[in-house]
Design a binder for these strands. Sequence first.
DNA 1: CAGCAGTTTAGAATTGATCTAGACTGATTC
DNA 2: GAATCAGTCTAGATCAATTCTAAACTGCTG
Lengths: 140, 140
Amino acid sequence: MSGMPQRPYAPVLERLKEAGLRPTRQRLALARILFTNGDRHVTAEQLHDEALKAEIPVSLATIYNTLHQFTHAGLLREVVVEPGRSYFDTNTSDHHHFFHEQVGQLEDIPGDQVRLAELPAPPSGTAIRRVDVIVRIRPS
Amino acid sequence: MSGMPQRPYAPVLERLKEAGLRPTRQRLALARILFTNGDRHVTAEQLHDEALKAEIPVSLATIYNTLHQFTHAGLLREVVVEPGRSYFDTNTSDHHHFFHEQVGQLEDIPGDQVRLAELPAPPSGTAIRRVDVIVRIRPS
DNA sequence: CAGCAGTTTAGAATTGATCTAGACTGATTC
DNA sequence: GAATCAGTCTAGATCAATTCTAAACTGCTG
């Protein structure tokens, strides 16, 4: 079918190298799925299914390893909204989320559409690491 | 030891009745642990341990049932901050949280110390059900 | 192309939570 | 206060998401 060999690997390869991650077959393929399709929010299972459909046989363990490595490297951000399920967000810039509870679907809120007028001082001996705002929505 | 029979059950009994929950042995005991010690944030496991230590033999299944029933009745509020673990907050008023990630410990932020200057319009066809703000902190 | 640290993998194990079917119990009725 | 019954409770099985383990594999570098 496709005449041109699929090769938008180059930019993704760069990102892996910069992050100090050895560009293996699996990491390249997963990075391509994650980072060449706009902003995304995936669970481990979703990414696994998608990889298998794309003919990239990869184990679930590797999916988990990779998601966490990417997160530590700052390529992904983990978002916790439901007990017993983690979402990974390819948008690592400063922003918050809508969470559609019925569907289990996350959606970015552009960073400047939520502003905290006032932030409390953290308890003494602690520093703020990050602020998460989750706007839980339901069909109306 | 204690001369007076422990009996701050009365107020707690009222709350159960008002919520339409039959005041059983277990529910009364758990309600007393939860609601007569100021604002608290507990996981199912924590509450279970505490109950057993207080000589109230209760199964883990009942702990889960009770926590959910109390939550539906509006006596508790569930807070999701960590994948794979749910916290239940005895403070059901409008407020947000600090989450001490190293320790897995939640702390209330008084309602008026976080104010959202701007809230985005929910996607069309949806309505906002609730907004959660989690300020993640770490030892400094 | 040999060697090795870093990766990947299948499958087992762990964890938090839920389900199930049977035993128990608060409230109601006589 | 015994009989009744819907509502509860329980031990144990089960489930789903995730992590662990030990062995096989693979990018690099020399």
